[in-house]
Nucleic acid binder design. Structure first.
Lengths: 217, 217
DNA sequence: AAAGCTAGATCTGTATACAGATTACCATAT
DNA sequence: ATATGGTAATCTGTATACAGATCTAGCTTT
């Protein structure tokens, strides 16, 4: 749909995700509405949607960009480690030549050093190509949401994408096992892939432990 | 908060859950607003909230009470079987005397043959007493939502609560293992507990295979 | 200087209004 | 009887308006 609310939602989501809007920053309906030149109703809708996605806290008074914490990160990755391998196991038997081909080309795309946002998008599509074949709409929706939330930690806490080399290797292993049609193997590789990203992120957060303060107004 | 939107949300949620509002039934903002004597704005809010919870479909035109299907049931239980044992494993080491005591009294409450809605509420609180000790807000939120969605299947597809006897036995096993402080055992019992409910529900749905049609209007 | 209080600014929840989109119904034509 | 077209009813998205709640800042009091 092409509503004002959807436009605002999409834009705000991106800005929260990339860290342009920092944790703790207040997002009042009025200010958002004014900034986008719409009335408060679509601004309100957008904030509610983002709150449901977990990117925004709908506090008592004003909505606020949600903070980050090592505890939440832990939780998000625990969920991903539980759900994505399950999705993988269910999907792999249905993955065919078409998916393998598209995954291969996405690997090339990622290897060509695109912007962070494009790299993350290609990465998400790579894994989604497997997941989609599981025929589990709800799980995929949940996974998309969890991935978005963890991607935010990458933007906020890791300036340069240090580790694309390791990730590329892991992706190729996953692709090979998928080609071979071994569900358990792909699932286990996926689980380790996720766990490795968790470790990577955790190390970075521990090095730079200060949770950013609310932006001064 | 004591807003009109929250009141409408709560009431509609209950009515969808118990089946008073049947799958496919259209829920227009206008009609909901009129019925509750509020303006369309809080009605709109309520429908959006319920849509985020998965109880309502926000179709192109009007919102509609979400349908049920064996495929969705499968998916919901797969998720619960993945998440709740994980939550259990994390929580059991922190479960103390207070929780055990409250769980025991909830078992009595359930054994006293309350109404379906009270039984389900006590049941949810029984398990929540464990989960809460895992200190995983996000997982608990997800679990609450999944439980609500599967409870709906109980209301819609199982008239009498046939199986409270089996459930009571399983609950007592869980309680004993929790008292003994064995995380892996409680987790495994919880997984089987969930799987058994899934089987039970699946058998009932297969026996009465017609998904209800939208209510005539 | 610290604590408390009050006026003003800001914000939210909700009602109402209007335009454009969608659907339903019914008459007419084939 | 079925297809077709048009009009009325319904619905949504959004703007605007208003009252009550919450916060802020500065003044007063001690």
């Amino acid at each position: 749909m092409d509503t004002a609310a959807a436009r605002v939602t999409g834009s705000l989501r991106q800005r929260v995700l990339t860290g342009e809007l920092k944790p703790g920053e207040p997002l009042s309906q009025s200010r958002v509405a004014a900034e986008y030149g719409v009335s408060r109703i679509p601004a309100r809708d957008a904030l509610q949607t983002l709150a449901a996605e977990g990117l925004v806290d709908l506090g008592a008074f004003t909505a606020v960009v949600r903070g980050t914490s090592i505890a939440e990160l832990q939780e998000l990755y625990e969920l991903r480690e539980a759900v994505e391998p399950l999705l993988t196991r269910l999907a792999v038997p249905n993955v065919g030549r078409a998916e393998i081909a598209m995954m291969t080309s996405l690997l090339d795309e990622m290897a060509s050093h695109p912007s962070a946002i494009d790299w993350l998008s290609a990465n998400a599509r790579f894994h989604a190509l497997i997941y989609m074949r599981a025929d589990r709409v709800r799980m995929i929706e949940l996974t998309t949401q969890l991935r978005r939330l963890t991607d935010r930690y990458l933007y906020l806490h890791v300036d340069m994408f240090g580790d694309t080399g390791r990730l590329d290797v892991e992706h190729r292993l996953i692709l090979e096992a998928a080609k071979a049609g071994d569900p358990a193997e792909v699932a286990e590789l996926t689980r380790r892939h996720i766990a490795a990203s968790h470790d990577f992120l955790l190390r970075h957060m521990l090095r730079e432990p200060a949770p950013q303060e609310p932006a001064p107004r």
